[in-house]
Computed example of a mutant assay.
Amino acid sequence: MKDLNNMTDEQLIHLYASGDENGLSVLIDRYKSKIYTSIYMRVKDDFVAEDIFQETFIKVINTIKSGGYNEEGKFLPWVIRIAYNMVIDHFRKEKRGPTVINNDGYDIFEVMDFADDDTERKMVRTQMDVDLKKLIQLLPDDQKEVLIMRHFCEMSFKDIAEISNVSINTALGRMRYALHNLRKMIEENNLSFQFQ
C-alpha cells in the first residue's frame, strides 16, 4: 500500500470519501498548523480558535461525506475559506469590533497609554477608539471584512483575495471604498482621525 504521507490531497480526499478515516487524518496533520494559525490571527483567542478549527473540520467532513467537495486541487484554500467564514460568523454573533493585540497579548485599544498624555487626552483617545470601532461596524460586510483582514490581521491583499474568493483588484477596491466610507462617516460625525 502506498505511504499515505506521499499521497496528494485529492487522493487522500477520495480515500476518506470511500471510508478510510486515515485519509482525513493525514490531511489534518498536513495542514492543521496553517489552518489554525489563519483562524488564530483573526480571533486572537486560543479557545475560540480551537472551537472554530473543530467546527471547520466538522463542515469539511460533512461536505466530503455528502459528496459536495468539488475543489479539485484546492483543498487548503477551500478549508481556509470555510474557516474564514466561520470567523466572520463568530464576529457577527458577538457583534463586537475586532481587537488589536500587541506583542504582549493585550488589546491595544484597551491598554493604550501614553506617558505624556494627561487624563483628558486619554479620555479623548479612548472615545476616539470607541467611535472608530462603531464606524467600522457600520461598513458593508465586504468592506468591513477586508479592512479587518488588512489592518487588524495584517494580511496581504493576495491572501485576502484568496480567502474572500475574489480578485486582488476587487479586494483593493473594497479597501479603497472602506477607507472612503470611513472618512465620509468621520467628516459627517465631526470626528478627528488620521488614515494613511
Rank of each mutant, 00 (worst) to 15 (best):
S38Y: 11
Q127S: 04
Y106D: 11
M7C: 08
T8C: 03
L15D: 04
D20C: 10
F91V: 04
I80H: 08
D159K: 15
I58H: 03
I168A: 03
I28F: 14
V100A: 13
N70Y: 05
T119F: 06
I148S: 00
E154F: 14
R150K: 12
N85G: 05
L12S: 03
G105F: 09
L27M: 06
K184G: 05
N5I: 15
I88Y: 11
T170F: 13
D116K: 03
I148N: 06
F152D: 01
M86Y: 00
S66C: 11
M175T: 01
K65L: 00
Y31C: 11
Y69P: 06
Y31A: 04
F109A: 14
V79S: 09
S38M: 05
N189P: 02
D9R: 01
M41F: 01
S192Y: 00
D117K: 07
I108G: 07
S66L: 14
P98W: 06
K2E: 10
I101Y: 10
G23T: 01
M149K: 10
I168T: 03
N169C: 07
Q11K: 08
Y16M: 04
S18M: 07
G173C: 01
N103M: 11
Q54L: 13
Y40N: 04
D20P: 08
R81D: 02
K133R: 12
I58S: 01
E188K: 12
F57R: 15
D107W: 02
K32W: 10
I88C: 07
D45F: 00
K44F: 01
G73D: 14
D89C: 08
K44L: 06
I163R: 10
D29A: 15
F157D: 02
Y16S: 03
R92F: 06
D118H: 06
E110S: 15
A171S: 15
M128R: 06
L182T: 05
S164N: 08
K133D: 07
S38T: 08
L76G: 10
N165I: 02
E55M: 11
N6S: 15
E154M: 14
K158Q: 12
